[in-house]
């Protein structure tokens, strides 16, 4: 058992524990901070699995941008009465059944693949090679992703505007 294998299991344990803590926290700020820890663990895992560029992106985008967006929203809203943390048992039970069922089914499907039990050799894709590959093979998809982000920008602006009364529209339409 090499040092990389031990490192993988330590990181996997960190990710699972941090995520489990995040989904059961009542305080949303604590949940987001635990999830940031989990994403840092995922970034380390990506580096271990030979994707250093994705490890950097994971920290910058997931842990940096997305989680900070969540923190901004949590700071913006002030909940007067916190709703109950989980749904009542009648709705909680199906949720547990569905997620446990997914776990069982996916584990059985993964376990049936005999080729997947052989340890993989370590390899690394350099950021240069990855960038060249991405822009030579998937340039159209990159452009579509940029359009998607533009749509998100415009959509967030439209949704986030203060909604005025109906008279505002009427005033604008009047000459």
């Amino acid at each position: 058992m090499s040092i990389l294998t031990l490192l993988f299991y330590a990181i996997a344990l960190l990710i699972v524990v941090a995520t489990a803590m995040a989904v059961t926290r009542r305080n949303m700020v604590h949940a987001v901070l635990y999830l940031v820890l989990s994403f840092f663990g995922t970034a380390m895992l990506f580096y271990l699995l030979g994707a250093p560029f994705l490890a950097a992106l994971e920290i910058i985008i997931y842990a940096g941008a997305i989680m900070v967006l969540f923190l901004f929203l949590i700071m913006m809203i002030r909940l007067k009465t916190l709703p109950g943390m989980f749904f009542p048992v009648g709705q909680l039970l199906p949720a547990i059944l569905i997620s446990a069922g997914f776990l069982v089914v996916s584990s059985v499907m993964v376990g049936r693949n005999p080729a997947g039990w052989a340890p993989m050799p370590a390899a690394q894709a350099s950021p240069l090679a990855f960038g060249v590959y991405l822009f030579q093979t998937h340039w159209l998809a990159v452009e579509i992703a940029s359009m998607l982000l533009l749509v998100a920008l415009v959509g967030a602006y439209v949704l986030g505007r203060r909604v005025r009364g109906p008279s505002a529209d009427a005033r604008e339409e009047a000459p």
Partner: peptide, 15 residues
């Protein structure tokens, strides 16, 4: 798969 089922539980059960 374990992470996915944790996320699924969070989406389905949190209020």
């Amino acid at each position: 798969g374990l992470l996915f089922s944790l996320g699924m539980f969070c989406t389905l059960a949190r209020r």
